[in-house]
């Protein structure tokens, strides 16, 4: 079964959804991501959905629950690059995803994550999000 790759970037996790989400894929992502946050002690999760052109209420809810679960695990979630059509669909479905941070681009999303996490206890050489 195909899976959505989760990339680790210092203290953040990157998820880029490049394929059409179907329900099982979304559930698998939810499971993988929570496991990965736990495993890597990630402080932030960035989900890029700029290639996602179709959503239904289930996918919308999964995005919301992923954000809530990540918060429970002490990681901030930012959803970036939502397409206008997707945004309209979600709003029409009555899902405005309260509690999920959003940003226009990956770059802005990263800035938001860094600001949200704030100064952390580092080991002197904080490499930052460049890789």
């Amino acid at each position: 079964m195909e899976r959505i790759p989760i990339i680790r970037m210092s203290k953040f996790l990157l998820v880029s959804i490049q394929v059409d989400m179907h329900d099982r894929l979304a559930l698998a992502l939810q499971e993988d991501l929570t496991a990965k946050i736990n495993e890597t002690n990630a402080r932030g999760v960035l989900i890029d959905i700029s290639s996602l052109e179709l959503v239904d209420s289930f996918i919308g809810r999964i995005i919301g629950t992923i954000a809530s679960m990540a918060r429970v695990l002490d990681a901030e979630t930012v959803v970036v690059g939502m397409q206008p059509a997707v945004a309209i669909t979600l709003v029409e479905l009555g899902m405005s995803l309260p509690g999920v941070r959003t940003a226009l681009t990956v770059e802005r999303g990263m800035q938001i994550l860094e600001r949200a996490i704030g100064p952390t206890v580092t080991e002197g050489t904080d490499a930052g999000p460049e890789e």
């Binding site: 939502m82 397409q83 309209i88 979600l90 029409e92 959003t102 226009l104």
Partner: peptide, 12 residues
């Protein structure tokens, strides 16, 4: 309100 919510979802 819908317009505002949709814009917020996109990060604006």
């Amino acid at each position: 309100l819908k317009t505002v919510a949709a814009a917020r979802l996109m990060g604006a």
